[in-house]
Design a protein around this nucleic acid. Structure first.
Length: 525
RNA sequence: GCCCUCGUAGCAUAAUGGAUAGUGCUGCGGACUUCUAAGCCGUAGAUGCAGGUUCGAUUCCUGCCGAGGGCACCA
């Protein structure tokens, strides 16, 4: 790929003229006047080599000019602004790159080749249904997993079922089931209680059995309604409690002298490993805390040999990041632990922000969202925002705007491409090359946008900011719209071969974007 | 009080420290005899405040203001 090749060339160049200086990136130029690709390498490096940015740029360009690899591909290089080096590609190079992207968009990229990656979204409690807050982890995690897989990763999508009968949540659920309380009680829960068949009066047992029903309903919702597949449904009760893994974790921590007793409870010395304070792992009533389970669980994940373990936490759990990182250090887990925090989703009604509160009855369920707008709109809605965005959700406004959701723009572009490809089947080609078509600015612009697909995927594979893919998909659709406006593809008796080939690659690329986003790519609309 | 996030136009948001802060909705104004008008073209409108670092700051640092979240032997 051309940006990688240029990057390597610059790296080599810097090695020659400024040894021991790191290379910088090459990216698609923001504006056409700045060439096709651009690099800020000279400006970044200049301070370290004690020259001005422009002098540095001149040296780099002079050295690049000597390279056969560069000469073959670059029409010209310009030094512009404070020291950018802008590259203008030969059209033949754009064509070959385009064809390469067309192939890769089918087969995948290799940025994360061979890495074993485990990803787990924050799971819903076993006490109720998915609300709009849960959508973030679920959709973001799914899209990110798709992208990491498409860029070569060996992915395991995992869902943690926190169904331990020792947990207080489960006990509360049991009380509610037995009519001893009303915690978590909703109309939905009442129907789930009605499905429960047990004679037991033990709150732990009853709560556990009810949680199974709730979790099973949630699982069905995730698979059928959200269309998200998981490779592993990891039951806390089966995998951590029943196997005594929690006990072994505890023993290991004791052996390493990482715990102490205080006030009848067992504490973990997390504060010595970057956490704000020490944490209880065994309560004074001898029951285990959730944190101990979480340590066992993550230890188990790393023991399974993942190079990278990714968690998506809800914002209300962000305090857990430090303690998990502390646990990783303590136990020396090999591999990367990446924890992303999805910010809160709040409600807005009549222009006024409101907290989502089950008690106040103003919870918006994810199910209702999908029923109202359809999965494509909902997935786009979540996928277009960074996890760090504290999004506000206004149901009334969403209804008003859903018909104008950008997802339709992108899907419409795809349907149009398909329509053109279909139409061309009835006529013959005129043998115009892609290179000839590139003389049209909007065609060249579209081609360069397609080349950017590799760049976007590489960025996401590196920094996990999966929402960039929606931005890219929109830009690609937009570049196609301009192309469609300016270039007649199918004429009276023939079609333009180069233009049709361009459309074909565009369609493959756009369809791949949509499929990675979990959104359908309709053939017609 | 302490800790973590976040503050970008009327609204929802984008921007590995880069060139003129991108996009959608809303508003205003256009074009239709043509491969799908769910489309196209034009126009208006934004980085909370004050410093600092840098050739260059929406981005990094400090303080302030504002919003959200967390500070349990709940999860």
């Amino acid at each position: 790929m051309i940006n990688r090749l240029l990057r390597e060339e610059i790296e080599k160049t810097l090695n020659v003229i400024f040894p021991s200086v790191e290379a910088e990136g090459v990216t698609v130029s923001s504006l056409r006047q700045f060439g096709d690709y651009t690099t800020n390498a000279a400006m970044v490096v200049s301070a370290r080599v004690g020259k001005t940015a422009k002098e540095t740029a001149k040296s780099i360009v002079a050295q690049l000019d000597k390279s056969e690899e560069t000469k073959k591909r670059i029409l010209k290089m310009e030094i512009a602004g404070p020291g950018f080096i802008n590259f203008f590609l030969k059209n033949e190079v754009i064509v070959s790159e385009l064809e390469e992207i067309g192939e890769k968009a089918k087969k995948g990229f290799g940025f994360r080749k061979g890495e074993k990656i485990n990803i787990e979204p924050s799971s819903a409690n076993p006490t109720g249904q998915f609300h709009i807050g849960h959508g973030r982890g679920a959709f973001y995690g799914d899209t990110l997993a798709n992208i990491l897989e498409f860029t070569g990763g060996d992915l395991t999508r995992e869902y943690y079922i926190n169904d331990s009968r020792e947990s207080n949540q489960i006990k509360e659920l049991g009380k509610t089931t037995l009519g001893q309380g009303e915690t978590y009680l909703t109309e939905k829960l009442k129907t789930q209680i009605a499905r429960l068949k047990t004679e037991s009066q033990d709150i732990g047992v009853v709560g556990f059995l009810l949680a199974r029903i709730v979790q099973s309903d949630n699982r069905e919702f995730i698979e059928k309604k959200l269309g998200i597949r998981f490779d592993i449904w990891y039951s806390e009760d089966e995998k951590l409690r029943a196997t005594l893994l929690n006990d072994r974790t505890l023993a290991a921590l004791k052996m390493k002298e990482l715990v102490y007793e205080k006030d009848g409870a067992v504490w973990l010395k997390t504060s010595e490993y970057g956490d704000d304070e020490d944490r209880v792992i065994i309560r004074s009533d001898e029951s285990k805390t959730y944190f101990l389970s979480d340590i066992s669980y993550h230890g188990d994940k790393f023991a399974r040999g993942y190079d990278v373990v990714i968690d998506v936490f809800g914002a209300d759990h962000h305090g857990h990041v430090k303690r998990m990182m502390a646990a990783k250090k303590m136990l020396g887990w090999k591999g990367d632990l990446k924890i992303f925090v999805a910010q809160m989703v709040s409600l807005k009604e009549n222009g006024v922000s409101a907290k989502m509160s089950k008690r106040a009855g103003n919870v918006v369920l994810l199910k209702d969202l999908v029923d109202e707008f359809g999965l494509d709109v909902v997935r786009w809605f979540y996928n277009e925002k960074a996890l760090s965005t504290q999004m506000e959700f206004d149901m009334a406004l969403a209804k008003e705007h859903s018909a104008k959701n950008p997802v339709f723009y992108v899907q419409y572009a795809h349907a149009r491409m398909n329509s053109i490809l279909e139409k061309a089947k009835s006529v013959s080609g005129d043998n115009v090359s892609i290179e000839a078509i590139l003389k049209e600015p909007s065609a060249k612009n579209l081609a360069l946008k397609i080349l950017q697909f590799a760049e976007v995927l590489e960025e996401i594979a590196n920094d996990y900011q999966a929402h960039r893919l929606t931005t890219y998909a929109y830009e690609l659709a937009s570049a196609f719209s301009a192309f469609y406006r300016d270039v007649q593809v199918v004429g009276e008796g023939s079609y333009n071969t180069g233009a049709l080939a361009t459309i074909n690659i565009t369609k493959i690329t756009l369809a791949k974007c949509l499929s990675l986003l979990g959104i359908s790519a309709p053939e017609k609309m």
